[in-house]
Design a protein around this nucleic acid. Sequence first.
DNA 1: ACCTGAACACCGTTCAAGT
DNA 2: ACCTGAACACCGTTCAAGT
Lengths: 196, 196
Amino acid sequence: MVGVSPAPARTSNEAIVAAARRILESDGLAAVTMRSVAEAVGVRGPSLYKRVPDRAALIRAVGASVVTDLAEALALVPETEDARIDIRVVSARYRTFVLRNPNGYRLLFDDLPPAEAPDPGAVAALGEPIVGAMLRLVGPRHALEAARTMTAWAHGFVSMELAGAFRLGGDLEAAYAFGIEAILAGVSASATRSSR
Amino acid sequence: MVGVSPAPARTSNEAIVAAARRILESDGLAAVTMRSVAEAVGVRGPSLYKRVPDRAALIRAVGASVVTDLAEALALVPETEDARIDIRVVSARYRTFVLRNPNGYRLLFDDLPPAEAPDPGAVAALGEPIVGAMLRLVGPRHALEAARTMTAWAHGFVSMELAGAFRLGGDLEAAYAFGIEAILAGVSASATRSSR
DNA sequence: ACCTGAACACCGTTCAAGT
DNA sequence: ACCTGAACACCGTTCAAGT
């Protein structure tokens, strides 16, 4: 116990990032101001600079927290025997997470100044479960290309869904399932053909 | 000729949108301020309000100009006899355009306030050449799902490429070609299977 | 050791005043 | 009819002053 300092902390880094993420999700990135975040944790704007270098670092920390949660949601523990089943499971969890955290997810791919963007390496590492499953499905020679095809499609699908770019109606749940099956069939066929 | 008005226009809507798009492409969206755009066309900030309601409308007009150019780049005139060839051509043009207009392209899918976002219908209409080719490739029953799979993948691929999310090296050109062929094979197989 | 009000530079926007 | 400087509200950020 050292609680005899002249001015004990009234907030914490975790509380600040959590508040910023809450505001981001409910009101969008533009609403995440130093003053609004400060108010949400019970201090004034300038006090945030005791814990966060600047707004860009705060936005980056929010992105990192989204990446952490998404990575946890996608982790395959344990893997099943069938790589196809694992890929279906990971893809379904991916879309579920994105639809529940739309503004947080967009932070990972939006056009942000480099200082605000989350670590590209951490974002790229989100594809690991798919790379692992593709290794089992199509073998080492085409695992990376196959995984990139699947992750690019999944990201593209949810990103367009969030942007309202699917205008012609139809069942998006079914369209998502169609895409997974098409790519599973396609990467197997392409990998087989080009290995001969 | 009516050029006797007390104060002839020194700029135009087209010049303003073009200047804004140039600044967006070279310095990013945050650099597109009313004052920087005004300076680029030779007037002061407040004068822009004679031609544009506000900054949100200006950003929307820039997005619309990107959509127009992209639609023109993708138009299939004429179509070939082989739908697969058309899909390869459109997909290649798509990636080329995006790599040449990265910040403009991101405007179409970024998390923008609704007032700044381009018309979702116009963005969605960019998929038409692919829908048409898929109609020929897999028939009416699965054309929409097949087109959505292809467009979602293409958007996802270039979006991740722009975000620097492909970290494991490899030839991205080849990975893009692999994805096209995998999806062509996959949507044909899926459409055939689920039609039986 | 932490928090705050005041202040500064910058932005979007309005408006009365100029030509 | 169009353009401008001045002004206002808001934002990120700094800093001297408070406890």
